[in-house]
Write a protein that binds this DNA or RNA. Structure first.
Lengths: 245, 245
DNA sequence: GCAAAAGTGTTGAAGATACACCCATGG
DNA sequence: CCATGGGTGTATCTTCAACACTTTTGC
């Protein structure tokens, strides 16, 4: 199920069946594995995080990697990313955004794997979230210096894409509880963008988007004047709808 | 060399080597073909055009398709698109932009092919351009209603990407001769965007980009006051540099 | 009353749009 | 002299950034 295992299996299998001579006479036989890698973002403690798994690859011991898997022959590419997300988190009906496809020959040490990267945003504290193994951990984006394979590059590309999209589309929906204060939303944007934002300008800009409705409820449990709670008017973006331009 | 041929060969080959039982016990064996499709844009007669080839696929007789090929096992994904461009047009050192990867199971009638789309812009009248077969033709974007496979969708996606990028990056460099009038540049932008633009505002906007230098030469052969010629200050974007954000 | 964040408007700068006249050239 | 496009500037509007004070609540 792990991409590393699958690729190794495939590679060995091909090597058994074929000599170098056959390889050159039937180059099309020696195919390329297709995988997806999911950058699953979460948000906790005012930090943008990403769900990673400890690499069990010898070359990358002590490193973490993104969640990915090979695409099945009868499975749409988008569906594969959806499956990885579901298998790893138990979450369904979540927005996934295709970002880029990484196809360098040497990007995977065990064989040729072309991988399409997707990002997704999930609520770390959702009761639906069901991390299915102890090997998965949330890591603060800022703290990540190095990942297995080319996954740091993939992560960076996805972070950049996320940053470009949050002002035009309500993609952060899933990262917050149903009801939230504008301060919480602003802190989330600041965590994603890595900058601080002016409170008044931020509120004006968000108000213009018309994404939110203000509730007649106030924050609770805060040691200061409570803010009004808001919620998104629309349902979260899901796989089928995606971002409509 | 044609993707259609390669895919059929691969499919037959796999079928010969394997029974359904083996397929289910070694699903990873039955791999997915990886291809690239190039949307090669040109510009002629004030129209944005794309280079297409007559499909030799039975299901798509009378339809045209984009230029693509399978990615070789020892070839970077980007390099494959570069090779397709070179093989088809003789052009080297041309900017290619990855756009999106299309991976629906049923997108190719002969087997599973995941294809990454790239766009490129080339000068139809360049002396370097060497269309290597009579099967290739330039088609006006506006006139294209239907293409083979999912290529119409790929084309539309690439056109949209191109439209989004031309105001931020000097990607149209290759579509014009070395020296050109501002009117010619404006007509090109209008053809790509499918709108008309205000001449004064367009010139102001382009001037702010600081992409061009004005020459001490005038247009020739026009039946009106000749405009000053301009050229791009920078070299055309190429594969290695790409668009830096 | 104090700490902490909520809530709220205005001003200035920059960028975008709309718009009209005179100029240079070829015929 | 006429037709055609070259070349230019201004007024308006919108958008964005910068910025400060009063209010409400918990403690």
């Amino acid at each position: 199920m792990y991409i590393e295992h699958s690729v190794m299996t495939m590679t060995n299998h091909l090597n058994l069946k074929s000599a170098a001579a056959e390889k050159s006479s039937h180059p099309e036989y020696f195919n390329i594995a297709v995988s997806v890698d999911c950058v699953i973002f979460g948000y906790e403690g005012k930090e943008l995080k990403v769900l990673l798994i400890k690499s069990d690859f010898e070359e990358f011991s002590d490193l973490y990697s993104l969640l990915g898997d090979l695409v099945k022959p009868d499975e749409d590419l988008d569906a594969a990313s959806y499956r990885v997300l579901r298998e790893r988190t138990g979450l369904d009906d979540v927005f996934l955004q295709q970002v880029h496809t990484f196809g360098a020959v040497d990007r995977h040490p065990s064989g040729r794997v072309v991988s399409t990267a997707y990002y997704s945003l999930v609520n770390i504290n959702s009761h639906k979230l069901n991390i299915n193994t102890n090997d998965l951990h949330w890591h603060s984006i800022k703290s990540i210096k190095k990942l297995a394979f080319d996954h740091k590059k993939i992560l960076d590309t996805c972070v950049q894409m996320l940053q470009e999209q949050i002002m035009d589309h309500p993609v952060v929906h899933n990262l917050l509880p149903e009801k939230f204060s504008l301060r919480a939303l602003q802190e989330l944007y600041e965590a994603i963008l890595g900058t601080s934002l002016d409170r008044r300008n931020f509120r004006k800009k968000i108000a213009l988007k018309n994404w939110l409705s203000e509730l007649d409820e106030l924050e609770e449990g805060v040691t200061h004047r409570p803010g009004k709670l808001h919620k998104f008017k629309t349902k979260p973006l899901n796989l089928l709808k995606g971002i409509s331009k």
